[in-house]
Write a protein that binds this DNA or RNA. Structure first.
Length: 755
RNA sequence: GGUCGAAUAGCUCAGCUGGUUAGAGCACUGCAUUCACAUUGCAGGGGUCACAGGUUCGAAUCCUGUUUCGACCACCA
C-alpha cells in the first residue's frame, strides 16, 4: 500500500490515464443499465451524430453535458440510461458517397437503385467506426448494448408502423407541390433546408404587348399562365380581367391579366408574370385564380419537351437563347445589370434550387400540432433556457403540412406499392440489361420489357398524385413497384425515442419512456424537437421527454460561426490531445451558462488543464503525508472520517465541512436547473481556494495529523465525487489511488449528501 | 420585412427575482523555488457595466428610446 502510494507521477498524464480508465470502465461493464424496479429511471437519448462523419466541437459539448447529467443521476441512485446511436444522415451521406464515385469516374446514374443503396450501406459500415471511437474517447458513459443505428431493422419497423397508422387514419396524402428541387443533387429540400445567397443578375424588362414585366428568369416565361397586377394599382386598371395578345419567342401568345394583392407595385413595373409551376408564390396565386400549371423545366434541370426549340437545353443556356431571341424581336425594353437579389440554394453544397411541381407525400399536421404545442405551453415539456420557448411556440402555431418525401436513395424507402396495371401513368426510369437508361410511362415500357427487367433495373419512378397504392412492409403478390422516394430523415429521426426504446412492446419502453432530458442544439428545435413531440404524443399519448435543454452554438475563436469557407473550424481532437478530454469538456461546459452561443473558450480549457494537474498533485501530496504519518506511527492507519469522534474536530475542520455542505447543495441546485457552469465554477473554487489553499496548507502544520488527515481525505473524496460528472477521467484515476478499496469505481459510488 | 438575443477588465465570459468597496479564467506587473504541483505560491494593476432619459432611498440589474453586433424566420418577380 505504502509503495503504491508514492508511485504517483508528479504530472497528470491525461493520455495514458484516459486509456486505462476507459478500459477499466469497459471491463467492469459499468454503464450497462439494468431496469431496477426499486430505482427510478433517468433517461437521455444521444442525438445521433452522422454515422460516417466525425466529431465536431458541438458534439463534444453535447456529450459533455449529457454525460454530466447521466453520471450525476447514476451516482444519485437512478437507473440512469444513456442510449447511443448514429444517424444515416440521408442525402448528406449520399452526397459524400457520390463524391467518392466521381473520383472513380462514375455517378449515381450508373447504378440501379438497389445496387446504389447497397454500396452506400457498405461505405457507411466502413466509416462508422470513427465516430463510435470518438464517443468512447470522450468518456461518454453510454450503454453500448443498446446502440442503435437509424437504419436498424427495429427503426424500419417503427417507421413503417407509424406510416401505416397515419395512412389508415387519413393523415397522409399525396399532392402536387412546388418543391425546392436541386437538379444537381437530385432531390428536394424542405423550406427549412434552403438558404439564400446574394447574387447580381441582369433584370430583364420584357414587353408583353402593351405591358412590360421585369424578371431575372426570362426562360420561365414559357410557363407563364397569367400576368398579375396589384388590384389598387391605378396604372393598370383597364387591363384587369382582360386578355392581352402579344408577340413572343414561340409566336403569337395571349395571357389573362389578373389582380392579386401579392403583387408589389413598387417593384419593377408593378406587373408580375405568373409561372405557377416554377415559383412558390406564383403557385399560390395560380391556386387562388384557378390558373393552369404549366411545367417547362424537368427534373434533370433541362427545358421540357413542350418548349420545342429550347427543349433539352439547360436552364441557363435556355435563358441566354431566349434573351437573344427576345432581343431580335425587339421585345426587351431594357436590362438592369446591377440588380442584386437572393438566390435559393440547398443548405449544404450551395447548389442552386429549381422550384418544380412534383407529386409529394404529405403529413397533415392540423391534428398533430395542437397537442404538441399544448405539451409545451402547459409545462409537460419544459424548455431550457426559457426564452427559446418562443421559437417552438411560433413554429407550432404556424406549421403547415409537412412534405415528407425525398428523392434520395439513401434513406428509408416509403413502403407504398403501385400496381403497374392499375397505374399506367407512372413514369419510370430504369437501367435495362444492356445498362442503358430507359425512361417512359410504365404502360409503354412494358410493351418492350418484362416487368422483372424493369423492376431489377429500377432507378426511380414518379407516380401521379392520384395513383393507387397499398402500404406494405413486404412486396405484395403481383406486379407491384415500390415507391422510390425515401422519407425525410426527420420523419424517421422524429421517432428516435420510440425506436431506441423498442416501442411498443419492449420492457425498456415501458420502464424508460418518457425520457427525462432531450439535450441538443437550438438550431434543430423545429426540424427535430417538434417532430419528436408530435410523433411521441401521436403514437403513445405522451411526449417523449420532460425537459429540453438547448445548448448554445460553439463559435470559432474569432467569435464567428465556424465554416469551411472562413477556415476557422476548430478540431476538438487537437485540444483533447494537448490538454485532455477532461479539460476540454470542463472548458466547454463552463464556457456558457445559459444556452447562449459562445466563442470557443480556449483559455478556460487551459485553465482546467491546470486544474486536472492540481487535483492530481493534491492527491499525491495527501498520500505522501499519510505515508509519512503511518511510518512515524508504526503503521497506524488514518481512521475513517465516519469513525471519528466529531468532538475532536477543530473549528477549521468544521468550517471546511460546512463549506462542503454548501458546495453539495449549490451543485445540486445548479444542476437541477441546468446551470452547469455555476456548478463547475463552485467546485473549482472550493477545491482550489479552500481545499488546496487552506485545508491542505493547514494540515502541514497541524499537531493532530490523525484527525486532520482523516478530515482532509474525507473532503477530498467527496469533492472527487462532485467533480466526477464533469471531469470523469482525472477523478476516476485519482479515486483509484485514494479510495483504498479494490475495484471501487468512482462512477458507481453514491453521490454526496449534506451532513 | 418579422422575431429573439447580446453590448460588463486587454481577451472569453459570469453577475438568477434591483441592496455593502462589480466577479472568474486567461493575459499583464512584482516577488518567491532544496518544503505535492511553475500546468505552482504570494502580492498587485486594470472596468464612468454601449449611449441618453426615466422609475426608486438605492440600477450593471427594471422601463423607454438610440446606436452597434449576432442569430433565426420570411422573402420583391
Amino acid at each position: 500500500m505504502t509503495a503504491k502510494r508514492t508511485q504517483m507521477e508528479p504530472k497528470f498524464e491525461h493520455q495514458k490515464v484516459e486509456q486505462t480508465i476507459t478500459q477499466k470502465w469497459e471491463k467492469a461493464d459499468a454503464f450497462k443499465t439494468v431496469r431496477d424496479p426499486n430505482k427510478k429511471p433517468y433517461t437521455i437519448l444521444l442525438p445521433p451524430p452522422n454515422a460516417s462523419g466525425k466529431m465536431h466541437t458541438g458534439n463534444v459539448l453535447m456529450i459533455a453535458i449529457e454525460d454530466l447529467l447521466i453520471r450525476w443521476k447514476r451516482m444519485q441512485g437512478y437507473s440512469a440510461l444513456w442510449v447511443p446511436g448514429t444517424d444515416h444522415a440521408g442525402f448528406e451521406t449520399q452526397v459524400t458517397y457520390e463524391r467518392e464515385l466521381s473520383k472513380q469516374g462514375k455517378s449515381r446514374l450508373d447504378f440501379d437503385r438497389n445496387t446504389l443503396y447497397d454500396s452506400i450501406w457498405k461505405f457507411v459500415q466502413d466509416n462508422k467506426g470513427l465516430i463510435e471511437e470518438q464517443i468512447k474517447q470522450m468518456g461518454a458513459s453510454v450503454d453500448w448494448s443498446r446502440y442503435t443505428f437509424t437504419l436498424d431493422p427495429k427503426a424500419l419497423e417503427v417507421v413503417h408502423n407509424t406510416f401505416e397508422k397515419m395512412v389508415n387514419e387519413g393523415l397522409i396524402y399525396r399532392d402536387d407541390y412546388v418543391v425546392n428541387y436541386c437538379p444537381a443533387l437530385g432531390t428536394t429540400f424542405a423550406d427549412l433546408e434552403v438558404n439564400f445567397v446574394e447574387r447580381k443578375d441582369p433584370l430583364y424588362y420584357i414587353k408583353y404587348g402593351p405591358l412590360t414585366v421585369a424578371t431575372v428568369r426570362p426562360e420561365t416565361k414559357l410557363g407563364d399562365t397569367a400576368l398579375a397586377v396589384n388590384p389598387s394599382d391605378p396604372r393598370y386598371q383597364q387591363y384587369i380581367g382582360k386578355e392581352i395578345e402579344f408577340e413572343d419567342v414561340m409566336g403569337k401568345n395571349k395571357l389573362p391579366v389578373i389582380a392579386d394583392s401579392y403583387v408589389d407595385m413598387e417593384f419593377g413595373t408593378g406587373i408580375l408574370k405568373v409561372t405557377p409551376a416554377h415559383d412558390k408564390n406564383d403557385y399560390e396565386i395560380g391556386i387562388r385564380h384557378n390558373l393552369e400549371i404549366k411545367s417547362v423545366i424537368g427534373l434533370n434541370g433541362r427545358m421540357a419537351e413542350n418548349t420545342r426549340k429550347y427543349a433539352g437545353m439547360k436552364v441557363k443556356q435556355a435563358r441566354e437563347e431566349i434573351v437573344k431571341d427576345l432581343q431580335n424581336l425587339g421585345l426587351i425594353e431594357k436590362i438592369d445589370y446591377e440588380y442584386v437579389h437572393l438566390v435559393p440554394v440547398s443548405y449544404k453544397g450551395e447548389k442552386e434550387i429549381e422550384p418544380l411541381v412534383l407529386p409529394n407525400w404529405f403529413v397533415k399536421v392540423d391534428s398533430l400540432k395542437k397537442p404538441a404545442l399544448d405539451a409545451v405551453l402547459n409545462g409537460d415539456v419544459k424548455i431550457f433556457p426559457k426564452w427559446r420557448e418562443i421559437t417552438y411556440v411560433r413554429w407550432m402555431e404556424e406549421m403547415r403540412d409537412w412534405p415528407i418525401s425525398r428523392q434520395v436513395v439513401w434513406g428509408i424507402r416509403i413502403p407504398a406499392w403501385y400496381n403497374v396495371q392499375e397505374n399506367p401513368e407512372i413514369t419510370v426510369t430504369f437501367l435495362n440489361k444492356q445498362g442503358k437508361v430507359e425512361t417512359g410511362l410504365i404502360s409503354d415500357l412494358l410493351k418492350n420489357y418484362s416487368f422483372e427487367e424493369i423492376e431489377s433495373g429500377l432507378q426511380n419512378l414518379v407516380a401521379p398524385k392520384n395513383a393507387k397504392f397499398i402500404v406494405s412492409k413486404n412486396k405484395p403478390n403481383g406486379q407491384y413497384l415500390q415507391e422510390t422516394d425515401t422519407f425525410d430523415t426527420w420523419f424517421s429521426s422524429g421517432q428516435w425515442p420510440l425506436t431506441t426504446l423498442g416501442y411498443p412492446e419492449s420492457e425498456d419502453f415501458k420502464y424508460f419512456y418518457p425520457t427525462d432530458v432531450l439535450e441538443t442544439g437550438w438550431e434543430i428545435i423545429r426540424l427535430w424537437v417538434s417532430r419528436m413531440i408530435m410523433f411521441g404524443i401521436y403514437m403513445t399519448g405522451q411526449p417523449p421527454f420532460k425537459n429540453v435543454y438547448l445548448h448554445g452554438m460553439v463559435r470559432a475563436l474569432d467569435g464567428r460561426k465556424m465554416s469551411k469557407s472562413l477556415g476557422n473550424i476548430i478540431n476538438p481532437d487537437e485540444y483533447m490531445e494537448k490538454y485532455g478530454v477532461d479539460a476540454l469538456r470542463m472548458g466547454l461546459i463552463s464556457g456558457t451558462a445559459n444556452g447562449k452561443d459562445f466563442a470557443f473558450p480556449k483559455d478556460k480549457v487551459i485553465g482546467y488543464r491546470n486544474f486536472t494537474n492540481k487535483i492530481w498533485n493534491m492527491a499525491r501530496f495527501m498520500l505522501m503525508m499519510m505515508d509519512k504519518y503511518e511510518e512515524e506511527n508504526n503503521s497506524t492507519a488514518i481512521p475513517e472520517y465516519e469513525k471519528l469522534n466529531k468532538n475532536d474536530l477543530t473549528d477549521e475542520d468544521r468550517t471546511m465541512i460546512n463549506g462542503l455542505n454548501e458546495l453539495i447543495r449549490s451543485v445540486d441546485n445548479s444542476l437541477e436547473i441546468f446551470r452547469f457552469a455555476d456548478a463547475a465554477d463552485a467546485i473549482y473554487h472550493y477545491m482550489w481556494d479552500e481545499l488546496a489553499a487552506k485545508c491542505i496548507e493547514s494540515v502541514k502544520v497541524r499537531e493532530d495529523k490523525r484527525i486532520a488527515l482523516s478530515v482532509l481525505r474525507h473532503i477530498f473524496k467527496e469533492c472527487l465525487k462532485l467533480l466526477h460528472p464533469f471531469m470523469p477521467f482525472v477523478t476516476e484515476a485519482v479515486w483509484e489511488k485514494v479510495s483504498e478499496q479494490d475495484n471501487s469505481l468512482l462512477a458507481l459510488t453514491s453521490w454526496p449528501k449534506e451532513e
